[in-house]
Every structure is written in C-alpha cells, then in structure tokens.
Amino acid sequence: MKTKVFSLFIMCLVVQSLMFGQTKDMVLIEGSRYIPLYGRDSTVVEVKDFNMDIYPVSTEEYKQFLKENPKWRKSKVVSLFADKSYLTNWKTDLEPKDSIHLNSPVNYVSWFAAKAYCECQNKRLPTIDEWEYVAMADETTKDARVKPSYNAQILAWYEAPRTKENRIGETPKNAWGVYDLHGLVWEWTLDFNSVLITGESRKDVDKDSNLFCGSAAVNATDLMNYAAFMRYAIRGSLKAKYSMKNLGFRCVQDIKKENK
C-alpha cells in the first residue's frame, strides 16, 4: 500500500513537473548586461532571466499548431497577417511537400504567425537583445565575440548553401545548451521592427533621414561584427507579413516570479 501511494505520488510529481516546469526543451538563460551591435544609446542593454527553446520550431510542431488553429492554415490565413508565400512549401493545408523533412525547421512563416504560435504555448518571441545575447555564445564561452573563430564559423554558415533543409539539432549546442542559433535558419524576433536601418543606409543620400526621428542615435558599436550586421540588416528589411524560405523562429518564456 505504502509503495503504491508512494509511486502515485512520484507520478504526480513527474506529471506536475512536466506541466509546470516548462523546462522541457527549454533552458534557463541567466540575464546580464552586454553591449549589442545596436543597443539603446548604443551602449549596454540589460537582459533579464528567461527560458529559451533549445531548438527552433520544427515543421512537425508547426503542423500540430495548424491542426489546432485552422485560421493559420495557408488557405485560411488573412492576408493582413501573411503574404502570398506563407507556407508555400506545403502542398496542402496540413501537409508539407514530400521534400520537406518534418524535423527541419519550419520556414515561410510570417511574424504574425510566429507570434501566434508562441502565444498559444504561453510563450513569446525573443526580443532582438535576448536573441543576440544567447547567440554570442559558442560551444564553450557565453560571450565568444572576441574569438576570431566565432565570426569565421558563422560566416562560413552564411556562405553554405541550402542549410534550411538541414535537420534540427545537428549543429553543436552552445554554452547555454541552445542549438541552431547559427547554421540553420534566420529567426524572427519580437521587436525586429526596431531596427532603423533602411535599404539605403549609406549616409550620402539624406532622403531617408526624414523617415526616422533620432536615427543618429542608433549607431553600431562593433564594426567588426559583420555577421551581426547581416542579421540586423535582414531584420531591418523585413515586414511582419513577409515569409521567407530561410526564416524560422523559436520561442522564449519569461520566468514567473512564483517559480522562484
């Protein structure tokens, strides 16, 4: 009797930790202050503690989401929230093309769709500052930006073709235990539209300075971080309803105070 009760008790604990721990496939990222390429006042930004998905969202997981949320299927989605190329690599509403592996990262999704996906799971998209903070790490160091090998490795990926067809989790995990921040797809961020660089960012043409208020304050801090430049440039060129073949996403979650 006693053992039965005990095993029940353990089972409950396990179930509970699965339901409430929400650490399944997420890792705790301890916040800190750091200097991103573009920050508030171009200086230090503060990142609070949060949990991050260790993998980007897979095609299979997205399929499950579409089953439960018909309004995000490609035949139903409202054009305000997704352009024509949304899920263009899916042959039907619920079936990706045969060439797509279910364990590849989902792509051709708009910002609105990615946001809805995360919110459905009580999560949210990471901010640029959060994403970049975790992405500074290589396999051993949490801020590897000073290492020449760090940039070289990322740039090697930017040159490698068709990485979006790779499977999730094949790149080495970084010092936080997060996979695939570099080497698979670009990822949506919650505030991607805070990047105020236009298509023509060389300042010889002054036309665009009228578009932005205070844009002189948004300057780059680390001109050597070419890889980060490319990410910010991509973000600056995106619109929320765009969907692109090499753009996926992952979710993060705030740490609730009562868990502490």
Partner: peptide
Amino acid sequence: VKYKEISPIDFSHSN
C-alpha cells in the same frame, strides 16, 4: 512603422 526605445523617454521611430 519601425520604432525603438533609445532611452526611457526617447524613441526612434518612422514618420
């Protein structure tokens, strides 16, 4: 519209 908080009282934003 793009915007970014650049200090607690200041934002950059598109017009």
